[in-house]
Simulated scan of single mutants.
Amino acid sequence: MFLLNQKIIMLLNYFSTILISIIQGLTEFLPISSSAHIIIFAKILNIIDENNFKIFEIIIQLGSTLAIFLFFFKKIKKIITNTIKYGFFYKKKLTISHIIISTIPTILMGLIFYHKIKIINNIHYIIYGLCFGSFLLYFSEQFCPKKPKINNINYLTYKIALLIGISQCFSLFPGVSRSGSILSISKLIGINRPIAIEFCFIISIPIVLGANILELCKHYFLINITNIKIFIIGFIISFIISLIVIKRFLCIIKNVSLKWFSLYRLFLVILLHFFLK
């Protein structure tokens, strides 16, 4: 009986691993907050081991980040080439300096409010984040300029890069969504949506890598022979799913009104409201 129970628990663990890894891959590229969906499904699946789940969440996010890096590799290579060819502070081409400027606000806010962010990372605060993100998406779609003013990624100034970086700080609050906040601000200041999406995911790479590597260094002692297999499976599934859907899902964001994502987020809030009763 004991062995049977152990097998059932193991099967449930693998099922949870596969399901949440797929969810991570599917939601990472839409402005609906992948972290919110992961926490919600963890609650539904009754995952109570918070420490192991924290590491697992980091690992599957790294899987998606690797997919983003490979997808935008040519663009990243171009940014590095621009920096080497024209100089670090060249303003007429997108260089590494633009990436650094856009990531500084989030890094500073993350370091200053690190402990507070960890405390609010639960399903109740996610509801507020989903509502705020929904408002941002709807507001930006409603009041954005009729014609984009910036249609070339090389036209992004340091001022715009900083503004996008500041908007990215909203994503530190669970449920808001990094891509959602950046897309919203970008539309309001007149950046063409494909350009905003491209810049959004490129600057997400150093932020996600830095934050997750920091977390792994702090909690490396939680990784052991028992859970390493689960982590590897999660990473691989998240990476594969992300790589499969990234092109199609980015196409959806480019062509679908942000209002639909806003409505979906509100629908999710309603479901959560009844779920928590």
Rank of each mutant, 00 (worst) to 15 (best):
H219R: 13
K159E: 08
N212W: 03
S238N: 04
I112F: 14
K146A: 09
F173I: 08
I104Q: 00
F89D: 13
L26S: 08
K85A: 05
K91M: 11
G110T: 07
F275Y: 15
I47L: 09
T65E: 02
P31C: 10
I252M: 06
S238M: 02
T83S: 05
K247A: 07
L62S: 00
K118C: 14
L272S: 09
I76N: 06
Y155W: 00
F274D: 07
R248S: 12
F274H: 13
F221E: 12
G234L: 01
F71R: 04
H37F: 02
I241V: 15
I123G: 04
K75R: 12
I76G: 02
C217T: 14
C131I: 08
E141Q: 15
L216E: 00
T17S: 14
F143I: 01
Y138E: 06
F56T: 02
I240Q: 01
E57S: 04
N151I: 08
I191V: 14
R193S: 08
K149M: 11
I20P: 05
I195A: 09
I80L: 11
N154M: 07
S35R: 04
I246S: 05
T17P: 13
N52C: 05
K218Q: 13
I59G: 01
H37N: 02
F73K: 13
K77W: 10
L4I: 09
I55L: 10
I230Q: 04
I39V: 12
F170L: 08
F274Y: 13
Y158M: 07
L66K: 12
K277C: 11
R248T: 08
E28V: 08
Y125Q: 11
S64H: 00
S16F: 04
G110Y: 01
I213V: 06
N13F: 03
F41Q: 11
I76H: 01
I233M: 08
A161H: 01
F275I: 03
L276T: 10
Y128N: 11
K43G: 15
S35A: 14
F135R: 12
I240R: 04
K247M: 03
R193C: 08
G180K: 03
I225Y: 15
L136T: 02
C144E: 14
L250E: 02
M109S: 15
K43Q: 13
K118H: 14
L271I: 14
C131K: 05
Y125P: 09
S262Y: 00
G110C: 09
F72G: 07
K254H: 08
N255I: 09
I80C: 05
Q142K: 15
G175S: 06
K277Q: 14
K247S: 12
K218R: 13
E198H: 11
I203S: 00
I228W: 07
A36T: 04
L94T: 07
I207F: 12
F56M: 06
F113Q: 07
K118V: 15
Y14E: 05
S102T: 12
L3H: 13
F201D: 00
S97F: 08
I182N: 00
T103D: 08
Y125L: 03
I58A: 03
R248H: 11
I253E: 02
F143Y: 15
